[in-house]
Amino acid sequence: MGAALGSVLRAIPLQAAEYAHSIIEAENADDKAGGYAPRFFTPHQFGTLQLLCETIFPADADSGGAKEAGAPEFIDLITSENSDFQLKLGGGIMWLDSTCADRYGSPYLECTHEQQKEILDSIAYRRNAARDKSLSQGVEFFSLLRSLTSDGFFTSKIGIKYLGYIGNSFLTHFPGCPPVPGV
């Protein structure tokens, strides 16, 4: 692919590539300086968000998890700009903490691993809300958080690698479907 890249790049104005990378660097510079200061969530809530994201898409033998993928920072950023998300996610984490306090006597982050699993197992499925109406707000919250975590994970470098996407490149010709039995 290297040869193809060189031949096509000649046709593309250099300043275009430079510009794209300069805006990217500027956007990233904010977040790279020192520890991350959450824009919307309190430090406690952000810690909870990090744990939830990592629990939704954890590191495993094949790749890092949602935390390494920057999903919590991405969710914090878009939530800081979206009042609907502020209500649903900010409120959702408070719902989770107060529900944990009622059930286990401490907020989610301080619950035991077993307690955390128990509450997540109850809000991770719609059918549970059908059985127990007191869970429905938690199920709604978790459903949105799961979607946004999938955004954050699968648009990251490690998430894209995990999926095996190959492309976004310069080809001189497109080879089409590789020979695969049955296709």
């Binding site: 629990t55 991770a124 799961r146 979607s147 955004d151 996407y165």
Partner: peptide, 26 residues
């Protein structure tokens, strides 16, 4: 190329969380 919103359907259909969901997405 993976993009935002691209896994909403799989997440809504499978629900849950964890390595199992991650593998299902892949």
């Amino acid at each position: 190329m993976p993009g935002v919103g691209g896994f909403d359907g799989v997440c809504a259909e499978n629900e849950g969380y964890g390595v199992g969901l991650k593998q299902k997405c892949r």
